[in-house]
Design a protein around this nucleic acid. Structure first.
Lengths: 229, 229
DNA sequence: TTCATCGACATTGGATCCATTTACAGACTA
DNA sequence: TAGTCTGTAAATGGATCCAATGTCGATGAA
């Protein structure tokens, strides 16, 4: 009954589950996290929960104040801009490397993911799990093609610091930006298809910066989806 | 007696202390870490030690196998190259941002740190704590001038994954590379002084890539400073 | 009525305890 | 003599226990 994924990973499993809840928005940013409640919910003792929270704190997803508990971190708008500037640089590097390495099947995969987004953008159906996943997969495939685990890991670390649902919500309400998003993806795919390193790098950088600005603006406008206790 | 730095940070304090031991080479890579021994050494129970180890594992500095203990991680040579490629991109970005923001006093500080390295290179005294620290400070100042905490944090994360003493040892034996190092630092400082973003970015990228290649080569040659149990 | 102080409650953090798993050593057999 | 099997010791991981700290409410005084 104990083994979830592979034995000996109970703590990491707990951490992953809590992270998933936060990323999906089930635990809104600003919400306090009670160790006892989480422990009861997962049917384990408080010890692994505490360690898991510590890991999430280390990752920057939550904040822990001594003797005062943990809350899902609320990023400041300027932090979003800063983080996306870094992410842009990293993903741009990934795109550059990918241009020299990507396979035809990976290119096809990219087009498929972007077609999902294109269809959703036309139908006004953004913010669904499908589109969120398609977006994630697009970037993941580029990272894989870049063939540098360290690079992928760094990018993951940044993404894991901002609840995914918030990014989706930011896109959900803006039809123009969604279409821009798809066009920018097209530009990246085109550059990758041509195996043009410089263009791929620049297209990806522009795309991520643009997404970052959009998300920053959203954060500035709206402190919604924040828990008010 | 309990309060080390600030109360409530005992676990983080333990993590920092263990990390410091590894970074200084006191705990060589490959060495198994016993929780009980560390706990006794720090005069605490095993609980905070375990959490600290988990954090270090998360950071990539150590490896933990279930029920088999933790060992200081031995990076593979290709990993070093991959990581430094990422680091080069990030530090290059830092240099670009710094070019537009750095103050005269920070520039003076950079020159001062590099002068320490220059003197040491001439005297054949590399690998000392002084030179190691001067090197660290040089890059830290550039990061600070870049004024992007996220960027600094990402760079730190990479650096914290490779014991500092190993990097120093790689430099220690190579007079030519030490001098190259100083010249590359000079180039960075010159570009920053001119507030030339492009040149600063490129100079820093070249410097870090070159350091990465050197360190990779060292790792390939020598699996010394590795614990053999 | 309002503010301050005191006390009970809830929650976290560290220590200790116990079960599980692995490694090692010695003995037994082929 | 070599290989295998088993029993014991040690180390990890999780659960539970206890102390320390912060929060909230009640009571009393201005």
């Amino acid at each position: 009954m104990t083994p979830q994924t592979d034995e000996g990973a109970l703590v990491d499993d707990i951490a992953a589950r809590i992270r998933a809840r936060i990323m999906d928005g089930e635990l809104p940013i600003g919400k306090p996290l009670r160790q006892a409640a989480l422990a009861a919910e997962f049917g384990v003792s408080r010890t692994p929960v505490r360690e898991a929270l510590r890991q999430l704190q280390n990752g920057g997803l939550i904040e822990m104040q001594p003797h005062r508990g943990a809350v899902v971190r609320v990023p400041a708008p300027w932090e979003v801009r800063q983080a996306y500037e870094v992410r842009a640089e990293l993903e741009a590097l990934a795109a550059r490397r990918a241009a020299a390495r990507i396979t035809d099947s990976q290119l096809a995969e990219l087009r498929r993911h972007n077609d999902v987004l294109r269809a959703a953008a036309g139908a006004g159906a953004a913010g669904t799990p499908d589109t969120t996943q398609a977006n994630d997969c697009f970037h993941t495939v580029v990272c894989q093609a870049a063939d540098n685990p360290w690079l992928s890991r760094m990018i993951d670390r940044i993404n894991e610091s901002f609840p995914r649902n918030v990014s989706s919500l930011a896109l959900a309400g803006d039809e123009r930006h969604r279409q821009l998003n798809v066009r920018q993806h097209d530009a990246v795919v085109a550059a990758l298809t041509d195996r043009d390193e410089d263009r791929a790098q620049e297209a990806m950088r522009e795309h991520v910066i643009s997404a970052g600005e959009h998300l920053t603006a959203w954060y500035e406008r709206r402190s919604q989806t924040v828990f008010h206790g």
